[in-house]
């Protein structure tokens, strides 16, 4: 299709309405992600949540190290780069210096759950008013597919060539559940990006993860089960199916904590928190 034909095709005809479009928070740059990598879907969700309502002008993104290091190139928001694993520590400084800002980190499982676990847990435990998006793709994607803390038992990676073994490497870390157990965390959930229904549920959870920060309730955390077709040596459709068949049974979906949903809505009112596990709640 040439440029003229494309322009014409993008105009709704009489009796037609555009029901899916991009938004101004996501810029037009093509991402560097591999074909079918679900980082791109996560990016679109973030852009939509920052666009409706219009939070982008006061948003500051703290990028991590991993395949999404250049994530600040794709959003029309302010952004800066943190050292590997330290995005929550950097975001703490940003949010305390600019209390009016909406601050979020976007981190992989290697970044947040391995090298940056201490900084992440302590920022969450302090109840920093930031939102962290945690992309669980069970590997270090950027560096070629080494084991991550989230690697499944039996999963072959370049550093577990015979498969991850419980006795040797420990089991997969369930960060959403760990986060939910910390007093400073106002929202903690796990969603998946493998299917249309799950992506739609993920957007709702993502909105809550930002709302708790804006309502000054505490730390917002959302884990997103994602894919790495390249290092999993799978085509993108098979990789998405692998998320559904192999990851979700190990990493149950759900909202594990939501202080914003508590009847009293008070940050310290831990006893009245509505807590849910596995499934359902994220789709509510």
């Amino acid at each position: 299709m040439d440029a003229h034909a494309l322009e014409a095709a993008l105009r709704p005809a009489d009796g037609e309405k555009c029901v899916f479009d991009t938004n101004p928070v996501l810029n037009e740059r093509l991402t560097h992600y591999c074909p079918g990598c679900l980082h791109g879907v996560a990016h679109r969700l973030v852009s939509e949540v920052l666009h409706e309502p219009d939070l982008a002008p006061r948003t500051i993104l703290v990028a991590a190290v991993g395949c999404a290091t250049f994530t600040y190139d794709y959003f029309n928001v302010d952004g800066l780069e943190a050292p590997h694993g330290r995005a929550c520590a950097v975001a703490t400084g940003v949010r305390r210096a600019r209390p009016e800002a909406v601050v979020f980190t976007y981190q992989g499982d290697g970044d947040m759950a391995a090298i940056g676990l201490a900084e992440s847990l302590h920022a969450a435990n302090r109840g920093e008013r930031i939102t962290s998006i945690f992309i669980n793709n069970t590997v270090y994607g950027m560096t070629g597919g080494q084991m991550a803390p989230t690697t499944l038992l039996g999963q072959k990676t370049t550093t577990t060539p015979e498969g991850r073994c419980l006795a040797r490497e420990g089991g997969p870390v369930h960060l959403a559940e760990i986060m939910a157990g910390l007093e400073g965390v106002a929202f903690a959930a796990r969603c998946a990006l493998d299917s249309v229904a799950h992506v739609r549920a993920a957007k709702k959870a993502l909105r809550r993860a930002f709302e708790v920060q804006i309502q000054n309730l505490g730390f917002g955390f959302l884990e997103l089960l994602s894919s790495c077709p390249t290092n999993w040596h799978m085509d993108p459709v098979t990789a998405a199916r692998h998320v559904a068949e192999s990851m979700i049974p190990v990493f149950p979906l759900g909202v594990f904590k939501d202080k914003a949903a508590a009847p009293s809505g008070k940050p310290s009112d831990a006893a009245n928190e509505s807590e849910h596990t596995a499934g359902g709640a994220a789709d509510a």
Partner: peptide, 22 residues
């Protein structure tokens, strides 16, 4: 059908959907 499922899954935001209002 104009359901937009394809666009929701596209990691590269390469799809626009126009639904017949009928």
């Amino acid at each position: 059908s104009g359901c937009a499922s394809c666009a929701v899954m596209c990691p590269d935001v390469a799809i626009r959907v126009f639904r017949s209002v009928k």
